[in-house]
Amino acid sequence: MIADDLKDFKKFTPKTLPREEPFVSGHRACQGCGEVLALRQVAKAIGTPMIAVSATGCMEIISSPFPQTAWAVPWIHVAFENAAAVASGVESGLKILVDKGRIPRKEIKVVAFAGDGGTADIGLQALSGAMERGHNFVYVCLDNEAYMNTGIQRSSSTPYGAMTTTSPAGKVTPGQTTWKKNLPAIMAAHNIPYVATASPAYYLDLMNKAKKASLIKGPAYLHIYSSCPTGWRHGADLAITVSRLVVETNIFPLYEIEEGRYTVRKNNQPKPVVDYFKTQRRFAHMTPDMLQTIQERVDRDYQRLLQMEGLTNPAVVKEERKVAE
């Protein structure tokens, strides 16, 4: 039961944020990178002792150009599609070596990081396997909605309409023609103890979720919105602005699923989606019709999320109603 795992969990407050940086300065991420910021917040929240596993991708490249590493904690990168499998091995290895008395009995958090390509596409099988097997580690998808490291190609996590180098806004097709794959729902379908979405603009929420994820015994999945000024074509100072807007418009609602119970961070007066789309040039070509389609879909998806909450977590809904009255 996760209640036991979380009995000593204390939420972070602005005054109690850890000073420690398991991930340090000198990394080569682009100016204003939202992904490395999300990574930093997760690493801070979970803290040491930690073993980090990275999939190939931006965060791996920018953190480990030999002979320099931005990781102050033990870190391993093997390949693109296997962060979850490598983390499975790390976790299994640690556990058995502790059992056999070959390493000290100490709680070491294992955290796997991958981008959306490494999670939703090429790494989905390894992730599914690891989650199903119930390994005790946190898997963090840093979702910047395309293959940025290779030059902004579309992934199954690229949102509808977005322009990438393989979903260009041409005369016939207006950017990405498919809808973003719902990874948190897929993870929830694995019946793992903890799934959550987060955005670095809501840093306390993000860090509390990361901390919870690390305390819960068993697999935990964090899906973190990670803005990419380079790939999304927005100003270098806008990472937090867009990370906030995406939540305020309900395009990327913040919620957690604890042992199947949904808790949604409420936003019943969302801003229109257009407010978000106009911040990034990857959406510059979008027509009012497309925006309308997206608005309807966003509204519908948000309502569905509330319905899931109502179904799975009636206590929370009741409590909220009481507060509202």
Partner: peptide, 9 residues
């Protein structure tokens, strides 16, 4: 991949 992770610890 898991073998590598385990061997690495």
């Amino acid at each position: 991949s898991a073998a590598l992770g385990a061997s690495a610890v």
